[in-house]
Design a protein around this nucleic acid. Structure first.
Lengths: 224, 224
DNA sequence: GCACCTGCTTAACAATTTGATAATATTATA
DNA sequence: TATAATATTATCAAATTGTTAAGCAGGTGC
């Protein structure tokens, strides 16, 4: 299992970006920086970091807004988000944590302490972030949007791919129909119940193997 | 899935224990207190809390020592440990986090902020809580919706699974028929009395072992 | 623009599974 | 043993999922 190591730092002070960025890189993290809220949001969607460090007071969107926006996107539900700011205002801190941030740090903070805190957070997060899922003879490449089974390429449509990808991300876990709807269609779109079934059917058909099990009244799970 | 809610607080100042304890209880946590490091260590082993708040400067063992000792015990590998102390000394903070603490808070801290931080920690913890029940040769996995007995998979329908799951969640406890009805069918649905029997029968049949005992006139209990 | 293709959703119906109940048999216990 | 409680069995209705085909929107090449 490969520990995720992509970190995005957003702060409007170049000095902070440089100091923290340098220290994180020295500790084996892959660092991207952003100078304001909008840039942070765009870069986050692009690079899908494992951890995002957000300054609260920034030009454009502030850190809390960025956090809120990101948490609405399914693929950022599990991403670690930490606020870093000079504000010692208690109300802000609570607001930050309640948007679903994982920690809240106040400047000034020494790089060493920061690294320690970040390591502690990652320690809790055991997740494979390579983007490639390999299960038996099946390979799912999130970046290439491709699926291989026994060296043979299988062409899946987008929804099919996302569905298989989701199920295979935790083999054995039963995904409730609601869970699937939220993760793939989002909370706003409403689609009929049979839609999931039809996609499942197509995946089963295209893969040719029965690796998706129905748990009646509950949901679906992936198993090889 | 039941959220862990047992918290142990260790501090040598009675005032702190009282204030924090009160606030945590008001937020639905079950609180135990300790007045020094040794007491904290003993109580931790006894009650197996989900979160431990440790003062660093305490009579007897200090907080870091307690943390180190606990982390050596397998059942405390996943326990949340947070340091709470007046020391703002950076070196101590790093030392704390490197022993495997999950956060580090400095006094003075307002109860609101404390609660927020603790909620944030639990939020993350609950995500990788497996929800697996293991009793003897029986394994019940809520996430996978699967039941294993001696390596053999047993397929249960939803109601059967819920029922077994409920009984096995507290082995030995007798669940009244009413209790079972409320937990599994809810208060609105009304089903006949024989319905429970039939489900119990199916579970017994499928498991092949007699681990559900009838307590006539009262209810059922799970025992291996 | 127009024909054509692809992917997504849905409707309609078939197939399957589940859960509840009735009817009857069995058991525990006063 | 009498009695109430539970076990067992078969049956049926309801819930759930599978399957197929059709409609629709968006994109592509001509």
């Amino acid at each position: 299992m490969v520990r995720g190591n992509k970190i995005l730092i957003a702060d409007d002070e170049p000095d902070i970006l440089e100091i923290i960025g340098f220290n994180l890189q020295a500790n084996g993290y892959e660092v991207t920086t952003a100078r304001n809220g909008d840039e942070a949001f765009e870069k986050a969607k692009k690079i899908l970091p494992d951890l995002i460090i957000l300054d609260i007071m920034m030009p454009g969107k502030n850190g809390i807004e960025v956090c809120n926006l990101l948490r609405m996107i399914p693929s950022f539900k599990e991403t670690l988000i930490v606020f870093l700011t000079a504000l010692s205002d208690e109300t802000t801190e609570i607001k930050g944590l309640e948007t679903g941030a994982d920690d809240y740090l106040t400047k000034p903070i020494s790089p060493k302490v920061l690294i320690s805190k970040i390591n502690a957070l990652f320690r809790r997060l055991n997740k494979d972030e390579t983007g490639i899922i390999k299960i038996g003879d099946l390979q799912i490449n999130r970046e290439k949007y491709s699926v291989k089974f026994k060296e043979a390429d299988i062409v899946l449509a987008r929804k099919e791919f996302e569905l298989l990808s989701l199920l295979a991300s935790k083999p054995g876990k039963v995904f409730l129909r609601n869970e699937i709807l939220n993760q793939i269609w989002g909370t706003e779109v409403i689609v009929g119940d049979r839609t999931i079934d039809v996609h499942i059917r197509k995946i089963r058909q295209k893969l040719g193997i029965d690796c998706i099990t129905t748990v009646k009244g509950v949901g679906y799970k992936f198993e090889m």
